[in-house]
Amino acid sequence: MHGDEIDRLYGSVEQMQININQRSADLTAESEKAKAASKAKSDFLATMSHEIRTPINGVIGSLSILELNELKESDAIQIKTALSSAEILMTTVNDILDFSQIEAGKLTIGSVPISIKHFVKEIERVYRPVIEAKGLSLRVNTSELESDFFFADPVRIKQIINNYLNNAIKFSKKGTIELKAFTQPSDGQVGLLWSTKTGHLFRG
């Protein structure tokens, strides 16, 4: 191989290395931009979630106080529906806050003893007015529970059920939505069953 060919080969290798280094630098810069954008989005979601929660808490508090007054039946129903809607909205805002925590790697899953009957009853309290306001009915069944307490993260379970119930309300034009808590005979674990007459089903 002649000297000029070696020089050309060396020049090509050198240029290739320069291109690789430049591409590597570009990718690093793009990665840093993506991380910065993701952090900015997470920070924005967290800030907005906190900002929105304050007025929603005010609405919930005011409606709760108003609900204690002696009201006409029609007014009481409207107040109860508005209160339930505000609480569901608060749940949605909390979900957004959790999303920002997931992206930041800060989301934690807890495990505490909870009363499943109280848990289901609370969901019923929040959702029944909204469900009935749409002309649907809600049926809750805990008769097949052998034990009332189990360990779980109530916030995460409630988020899952809220999502399914919100979809049930959104996509069901008529019929009954059922939420059932039961003890599985195979292993004694607590199960949750959600269904509508249209065949939607959730089991956990």
Rank of each mutant, 00 (worst) to 15 (best):
V155P: 00
I52Q: 05
Y127S: 00
N69L: 11
S42F: 09
V155F: 05
S42T: 12
S137Q: 13
R128P: 04
V59T: 02
N141F: 02
D187Y: 02
D43R: 13
V13S: 09
T47L: 14
Q15F: 12
I20D: 03
A104M: 13
Y10H: 04
V13H: 09
T183F: 05
K72N: 12
S195D: 05
T54G: 07
V130E: 00
I79K: 11
I56R: 00
M16I: 04
L201C: 11
K72Q: 10
N162E: 03
L89H: 04
F151R: 09
D26P: 02
K197A: 06
S85P: 07
S74I: 06
M16N: 13
A29H: 09
K80M: 04
E146G: 08
Q78G: 06
I169T: 02
Q184W: 03
T108I: 03
N21R: 15
H2K: 02
G110H: 12
E5R: 09
D75H: 13
I114R: 01
A36V: 02
K39Y: 01
K117M: 01
L97E: 12
K106R: 13
S147E: 14
A82N: 14
V112Y: 02
M90L: 14
F202H: 08
K41V: 07
K106Q: 15
H2A: 02
A40D: 11
L179V: 12
D148W: 09
R23K: 11
D95Y: 09
T142G: 10
V130G: 05
H50S: 14
R53Q: 13
F99K: 07
E87F: 05
R139M: 12
I116N: 07
L66P: 01
K121G: 03
T91Q: 14
G11V: 08
P185H: 01
S100K: 02
T196M: 06
K170V: 07
T28R: 11
L68S: 12
R53C: 02
S100Q: 10
D98A: 12
E32N: 13
S195N: 06
T142V: 06
A86F: 04
F171S: 07
A25F: 00
L145R: 05
L68N: 03
Q78A: 15
K173C: 03
S64D: 05
L97A: 14
A40M: 06
S137L: 04
A46E: 14
H200C: 03
N57C: 06
D26L: 05
V140T: 04
I161S: 10
L66A: 13
Q15M: 07
F150L: 13
A168V: 07
S115E: 07
T91K: 07
E30I: 11
S64A: 10
L63Q: 00
L83D: 08
A37R: 12
H118S: 14
A37K: 06
S12Q: 14
G110D: 05
Q184R: 15
Q15D: 09
E87C: 03
I88D: 03
E132I: 06
S62V: 13
S186E: 15
T196D: 14
D95N: 15
D7Y: 01
K121W: 02
F171T: 10
V120D: 00
Q189Y: 14
K41W: 10
L193Y: 01
N21M: 09
P129M: 08
T176E: 04
V59I: 15
G11A: 12
L63H: 09
L138G: 01
D98R: 12
P55W: 05
Y164G: 01
I77C: 12
D148G: 00
N19C: 04
I177Y: 00
S84D: 03
Q22C: 05
S24K: 11
L179D: 01
